[in-house]
Amino acid sequence: MTEEYLTLTDNSGALKGKTIFITGASRGIGRAIALKCAADGANIVIAAKSAEPHPKLPGTIHSVASEVEAAGGKALALQVDVRDEQRVAEAMEQAAERFGGIDAVVNNAGAINLTNVESTPPKRYDLMQSINSRAVYLTAHLAMPYLKQSANGHILSLSPPLNLQPKWLGPFAPYALSKFGMTILSMGLAEELREAGVSVTTLWPRTLVATAAIEFAVGNREMFEQSRKPAVMADAAYEVLVTENGLLTGRQLIDEELLGERGVNDFTEYAHNPAKADQLAVDLFLEP
């Protein structure tokens, strides 16, 4: 899918030479964020499990690395399972050695299973907690020494604003717990790292985003007609990462709202099908 990004605030080149460590960056939103930041001259660490081509899912750490270089950035492709403490630590060290430090961590890797407690096998429950909430803890814990050395350190996690209404908990409490856990950890990290000058925020899409999760875990490819392209999250993530002085730290951001604050008035081109831009589905955990 070709991504079309919008030019927003005058921050061109703000990420030049900055090192962005992105989990799950081999496809979908992670890939889109990688390419958006690469176009600004950033160093991109593509930390994901997908080292070999998948028959149904396009994209590997190596294919995205090539795209990053073509977009104008520098790439480091690392096969990483965010559940593996030793491997994540090694990846952080490799990134810092290659590029001289780490300026931002984007927690994009995720696991989703929309089932209630009775229908969720323990292995699937553990998988969601480990890849979602635990990974936020682990990457932050291991990246802190590097981020504290950055002039504009960031931790950005793709998780929703807290919404504890029963309608969001009853149908799939295990998944909700894992995603809200990411947000709660981010809220705590924002306070913990405030004096160190490291900004911590969460970001969630206002509408469904056309990714493999929507096609295979939530519904089917027909739902893309009710979705926006990953570029909307990439543009919003970029706006977070170029924001200085902790102005956004602690906030639970929605892509559409942040982009609106930064001057975007027309979201039509973000729609997977612009002709149906007025028929988009609101994402999980958000009210219509």
Rank of each mutant, 00 (worst) to 15 (best):
T9L: 10
G41Q: 13
T23C: 00
N265D: 11
S119M: 13
L35Q: 07
L127T: 12
E52I: 08
E85A: 15
L247Q: 15
F267L: 07
L203K: 00
N152P: 01
R228I: 07
L177G: 14
V68R: 01
W204Q: 07
A34C: 12
L35D: 01
A196L: 08
E85C: 09
E215L: 02
E93R: 15
A277G: 04
D81C: 03
H154T: 06
N265W: 00
V136A: 10
H154P: 01
I44R: 06
N107I: 02
C37K: 05
I184T: 14
L203M: 13
N113D: 13
S227N: 09
V82R: 05
I29C: 08
S159F: 08
M144E: 08
K148V: 14
E69S: 00
M233Y: 04
T243E: 09
E191C: 11
E118Y: 09
P58D: 05
N273P: 05
L8M: 02
E244L: 12
Q279S: 15
A109L: 10
T211M: 06
Y137W: 15
A111R: 08
T202W: 11
N220R: 01
R134N: 13
C37H: 03
E52P: 09
F180M: 11
K49Q: 15
E287G: 08
A42Y: 02
K74W: 03
T183S: 12
T183R: 10
M92F: 12
A34S: 13
H62N: 13
P161V: 10
A140M: 02
F172L: 11
E287M: 13
H54E: 11
L253F: 09
N220Q: 09
N43E: 08
D266M: 05
A39W: 00
R134V: 12
K49G: 12
S186I: 08
V82H: 04
D40V: 09
R206M: 12
I184W: 00
E67M: 01
P274S: 05
T60V: 00
K56Y: 14
A231H: 05
S130I: 04
K49T: 15
I214Y: 03
V82E: 03
K123T: 14
N163C: 08
A91T: 06
D235L: 09
T268S: 12
L142I: 04
M144Y: 01
L189P: 05
V82N: 03
A14C: 04
Y270G: 02
A196K: 14
D103V: 05
G110F: 04
A210R: 07
R83Y: 02
T249P: 00
D283H: 12
N107H: 14
V282K: 13
D40N: 13
P161N: 10
F224C: 09
T268C: 04
P122M: 12
N132Q: 09
C37S: 11
M223P: 01
T249K: 10
G73H: 07
G59S: 02
N265F: 00
F21P: 06
A111P: 01
N43A: 10
E195R: 12
T23I: 06
V218E: 05
R27G: 06
T9E: 15
A196N: 11
S159Q: 01
E192N: 14
Q79T: 11
R83D: 05
T202L: 01
G219S: 15
L189Y: 06
E287Y: 10
R221C: 01
L158V: 04
K229H: 09
F224Q: 07
V282Y: 13
K229Y: 07
K56P: 00
A231C: 01
A231M: 04
A71T: 02
A210K: 00
S50G: 07
R87K: 15
E69P: 06
